[in-house]
């Protein structure tokens, strides 16, 4: 499971404050702690913290320096630009692509799959390896009116997306969005994560400080035979798989 730490996001008050104060220590500390907790990548997101988006993201990335950027964009014109950027950033740079278009977030399975197919097709045409793509079918807050049908629709989309290319693209979700504003956030997040992992999810932008969530990831990986069972399987998960 490739985990992407979600915490360096201007939506969180401590990050927002750090951006306002230009306090590097808070950002670096979050980076270090998330890495120790098992994050392979760090999501770096200005959110609503500053009017100067460009300057702020630059400051954040400079503050983190050795983080590998995962570039998140949706607009199809920009897709090429980001592939180019990922190519320039070297063979380890990957790309997150959202299964949405100018019409916004799709509400059904078929549109999600169609957009993913288009992204994969464009990647193949340009010789961009599909294994460097992280397709995000987009999770919506379950508490939003009429959104309760979405989790099942997303699982069905993931079943189809992973058949679109061989080797299949990675699949990721912005997990915490699912429980936005809801009660029992941690429980909702980890149950859906377990469900999605059984449908091919192999990455998530998530709260790696959530111990119950991390234990669920370790258990899923073990149950799906991606990790050899040992009595200490929870304890070693993060350390045993550090690249």
């Amino acid at each position: 499971m490739i985990l992407i730490g979600e915490r360096i996001n201007g939506m969180f008050t401590d990050v927002k404050q750090a951006i306002a104060d230009k306090n590097k220590k808070v950002i670096q500390d979050l980076a270090q702690r998330q890495t120790q907790a098992g994050a392979t990548y760090l999501d770096v997101n200005v959110g609503t913290a500053a009017a100067d988006q460009e300057g702020t993201i630059q400051w954040l990335v400079e503050t983190l320096l050795n983080s590998a950027p995962l570039n998140k964009k949706t607009d199809e014109e920009i897709l090429y630009k980001y592939m180019e950027m990922a190519e320039k950033a070297g063979p380890k740079a990957n790309l997150i692509a959202l299964a949405m278009d100018k019409n916004g977030v799709p509400q059904d399975t078929d549109t999600r799959v169609a957009i993913a197919a288009e992204i994969l097709q464009k990647a193949l045409e340009r010789g961009f390896e599909t294994q460097r793509l992280f397709i995000d079918p987009i999770v919506l807050p379950v508490k939003v009116p009429n959104a309760q049908t979405q989790p099942a629709i997303i699982l069905a989309a993931m079943d189809q997306i992973r058949l679109l290319a061989d080797p299949p693209p990675h699949m990721t979700v912005g997990l915490s969005n699912l429980s936005q504003g809801a009660a029992e956030r941690s429980l909702i997040n980890r149950v859906f994560l377990a469900m999605a992992m059984s449908h091919g999810l192999d990455s998530a932008i998530a709260d790696v400080f959530d111990e119950n969530l991390m234990n669920a990831v370790a258990t899923c990986d073990m149950l799906m035979n991606r990790q050899i069972y040992s009595d200490s399987f929870l304890k070693v998960y993060a350390t045993a798989n550090k690249k």
């Binding site: 990790q227 070693v236 045993a240 798989n241 550090k242």
Partner: peptide, 14 residues
């Protein structure tokens, strides 16, 4: 054989 595959998959404990 399984140990080798785990090692290649990045499992440091194997």
């Amino acid at each position: 054989e399984r140990q080798r595959l785990a090692a290649l998959g990045g499992d440091k404990m194997m």
